[in-house]
């Protein structure tokens, strides 16, 4: 009887959370949430919440979560973890603390209304499809090239400052997926392409013609890796004002949760 009563109460509280918007989302709450996050969650998700290859914990700064599409659901995940995975909750903490963590995670995802963009997204779209020649390498909404990252949700992954740096200093941050590999086969022939995946024994690349190649390392003569970007700096082709327009357009490609 007591157990059923307790269960009912718990379900009632969970139900409240389901219906509730975050009651603890002031700037102070965000600060408090950050402290708890860094202590309790940072070990797996990283102190900067950008995820960690080693632990398999995802990036929480994108505003998009595979296990939580609402604040209430995010509250549940922070409280209970995700059953059957390594994600554990902090259910021992008071609800207020859990909401503060939710507030902090929410704060990692920029509110577009709070961002002052000097450029014009409409102009940026024209540049994207025209002078910028972005479509030759980048996919967007299912069309475009395959020799650069898909930009359909780039506005979630990168803030305007980062987008500007990506355009002007493309070699600053090059993810391993976009490194270049030059493969020399046993017969001396060479294939060069983007490093789609490399492991201890094999590697896979995409060449300029977008052909997919698989190599066994034991069967090639050599491989050479270049960690710079294949994209030219936008400073070579666009004015700074045009760069701002392109940033505004790319940032507008956010998918709001």
């Amino acid at each position: 009887m007591y157990r059923n009563l307790l269960l009912g109460l718990l379900m009632g509280i969970a139900g409240q959370a389901e219906a509730q918007k975050n009651p603890f989302d002031t700037r102070i709450d965000v600060r408090m949430g950050q402290r708890v996050f860094r202590a309790e969650c940072g070990r797996c998700h990283g102190r900067d919440a950008k995820g960690n290859d080693e632990t398999g914990a995802p990036d929480l700064t994108t505003g998009s979560f595979s296990a939580a599409s609402t604040e209430a659901k995010l509250f549940e995940v922070v409280r209970d973890g995700i059953p059957g995975t390594t994600m554990i909750g902090i259910g021992w903490a008071p609800d207020e603390t859990i909401w503060q963590v939710v507030a902090y995670i929410d704060s990692l995802n920029l509110n577009p209304d709070d961002v002052d963009l000097p450029g014009s997204a409409d102009q940026g779209q024209k540049l994207y499809n025209g002078k910028g020649n972005c479509t030759s390498c980048h996919m967007l909404g299912g069309s475009g090239g395959r020799l650069g990252p898909d930009l359909s949700t780039v506005g979630n992954r990168r803030d305007p400052d980062e987008l500007k740096e990506d355009l002007l200093e493309p070699n600053e941050t090059v993810l391993p997926r976009w490194w270049t590999m030059r493969i020399t086969r046993a017969d001396g022939s060479v294939t060069e392409g983007l490093r789609m995946n490399e492991d201890t024994f094999t590697l896979r690349i995409m060449d300029k013609e977008e052909n997919l190649w698989h190599f066994s390392k034991s069967q090639i003569r050599s491989s050479k890796r270049t960690e710079t970007s294949t994209m030219p700096s936008a400073s070579e082709t666009l004015t700074m004002s045009e760069v701002d327009d392109l940033v505004a357009y790319l940032f507008s490609l956010r998918k709001e949760s």
């Binding site: 202590a39 990283g46 102190r47």
Partner: peptide, 10 residues
């Protein structure tokens, strides 16, 4: 509660 006094990032 966790008592780590800092952290690290990649």
């Amino acid at each position: 509660e966790q008592f780590t006094g800092g952290g690290a990032q990649n």
